[in-house]
Design a protein around this nucleic acid. Structure first.
Lengths: 348, 348
DNA sequence: CTGTTAGCGCGTTCAG
DNA sequence: CTGAACGCGCTAACAG
């Protein structure tokens, strides 16, 4: 009767008002806090009261407003920072992350960190949303990023990158081991003059793989190896690098690529540009085990990263840190596994 | 002095307090609303005042709290609903969407709609975040979804799907035309008995492509065509469907797949399982023009979807609707374009 | 153009 | 276990 501010009730442009706790409380004949508690799993409330609230809420089609909720308590948002949208490797990973986050009644804020915006900036930005936690999938990890993460007291997990610094939580696979496995696979198959095609400069994954690879080659007495720059993790980069390698006088008889998508590009260069036979003339090996690796066209031997386990660990450790903010950072390294396919089966 | 609730100030677990407008206002010697306006691009505020606020804010390392902001005004969140995380087609698209959204000072809430959760539920969920807008990339579009979208008054754009219903905004490419182009490409190349390998049942894209394909074949007097179920949009589905086709007595001499990733699977089945030569024995054609299509291994002729333009249109129309909520829904259909590669070049 | 003030929708004290 | 009242950080309405 005496609501003086109701002048524009029937304007067509008016944003349809959402149902709020107050209305639900009125409808259910209870207090607002009862409604609040009913929708909060860890609050203590009697069974019948909760039921009553739920019934009224359902009747009014009430949905809690996560924005309002997020202002004081948890936002239910988990940030995911991604840098490499070119590599198909990341699509299934993204799928798993979002799915797991949703299972925990949270949602994913996906941040695309491209060249326009550096990672530092992205981290600060995502913090404006009061995210409960942050997952970073970045091959390179500048020190400033580590600092940025630590200065926030929001749990951060770095996915797929080895830790040189143990002040931040990291989940990765053992890339040095991957390199060593690669050396063994190629030498065991009878190749003598392998080359490593590196990935983006300064990314730990490629550095560690190279280190493991070379050191294992040396251990086994193989000295005729070479390393070439590859550039980015992409089909084209693998293709181009391969052509460059074979311009040299010292031609390798096997190629270990920093990742699968580069290896696929490399294989196409070998077959269709250089007219070399795989695996007879040249052996090819990658890392990741992306979906394409097991296609009949590529049939690529590779070192499989344990994605499922890595993702599971990431989620576990992240939510542990969310519910217990002063846990110390930890570093989890999972083993990888060789996958023998046609591209290295020289003798058969 | 007389703050009675400050008992646990030096607890290590205390969440580091964020700087707020009030503190910035005090530091700058202005009012809170001045601070608010300074951070709001469309607010009217004098140059020197804004500078002063910014300086104080920078000194305190103030960041606006988007959650608190979102409660009254825009949330700066745009929801992206994705269903198909298996198809590499969507990774670059996701990249563009997130990037474009960020350019507009918004961020992406990525929802993975898998079997655990139906689309309807996902829409309601995302609405709890008060998203400013919603992008849906879904091959199938149940009526209930359309209803859900309309009942909210949040702008929704459906990406990559034709509209049978014009009560919701849709951006897609002309899939019927794609089918017609496919028919012309295959007939022009000299193939006589083409087959269409369909995608997921009930998805408009595959239905429309099939319709255009068949009708154009008939127009040009070709009657020896067949249609086979493909299942999902995936490598394996394409592979398996291809093997099934060639078990029949009526063997086609060309295959038009509902999308590229199926076509890649199909090509591998043809070459490595059936020992058929592409394009001599069988012509192969896809739709999408994914990255893999132009690899040397596949070199797949295809009908290119104008992704750039589709994404641009999607963003434009979405943000138009965000700033002007009672615009009528519209339906945008963009033309596609044939891409001739090796898989259909029978004569040369 | 600027400051003051009153909410936004919800969680969380604090009494009962 | 329940309800009343306060405050979160910010924007919007109004007044100067």
């Amino acid at each position: 009767m005496d609501k003086p501010t109701q002048l524009t009730t029937n304007s067509p442009a008016v944003k349809k008002r959402r149902v709020t706790v107050v209305e639900v409380a009125e409808a259910a004949g209870v207090s607002v806090s009862a409604v609040s508690r009913a929708f909060n799993p860890e609050a203590s409330i009697s069974r019948p009261l909760r039921e009553k609230v739920f019934k009224a809420a359902a009747a009014l089609n009430y949905k809690p407003n996560r924005m309002a909720r997020g202002i004081k308590s948890r936002s239910s948002l988990v940030g995911i920072l991604m840098t490499d949208f070119n590599n198909p490797f990341y699509l299934p990973i993204l799928s798993r992350f979002t799915s797991e986050i949703q299972k925990r009644d949270c949602h994913s804020l996906l941040i695309n960190v491209n060249s326009d915006m550096d990672i530092q900036e992205a981290v600060e930005l995502v913090m404006e949303y009061n995210v409960d936690g942050l997952i970073i999938t970045s091959a390179s990890l500048p020190q400033q990023l580590v600092d940025a993460c630590r200065s926030q007291n929001t749990p951060v997990v770095i996915f797929g990158r080895d830790s040189s610094d143990n002040s931040v939580t990291v989940v990765s696979c053992d890339n040095v081991l991957a390199g060593r496995m690669a050396a063994d696979m190629l030498l065991d198959a009878g190749y003598m003059r392998p080359a490593f095609v590196a990935g983006p400069i300064g990314t730990s994954a490629t550095v560690d793989r190279q280190r493991g690879f070379i050191s294992r080659l040396m251990e086994r007495g193989c000295n005729q190896w070479q390393v070439v720059e590859g550039g980015e993790f992409s089909y084209d980069a693998g293709y181009d690098a391969t052509l460059r390698v074979f311009k040299n006088s010292e031609r390798p008889d096997a190629l270990f690529y920093a990742d699968d998508i580069m290896a696929c590009g490399g294989m196409d260069a070998l077959r269709y540009e250089l007219a070399l036979k795989i695996p007879q003339d040249v052996g090819v090996l990658g890392v990741d085990d992306i979906r394409l690796a097991k296609s009949r066209s590529y049939n690529l031997s590779t070192i499989r990263q344990p994605n499922e386990e890595m993702i599971q660990s990431t989620m576990d450790v992240l939510f542990e840190h969310i519910s217990n903010p002063n846990l110390p950072p930890q570093s989890i390294t999972l083993p990888c596994e060789p996958v023998l396919r046609g591209s290295t089966q020289k003798h058969r």
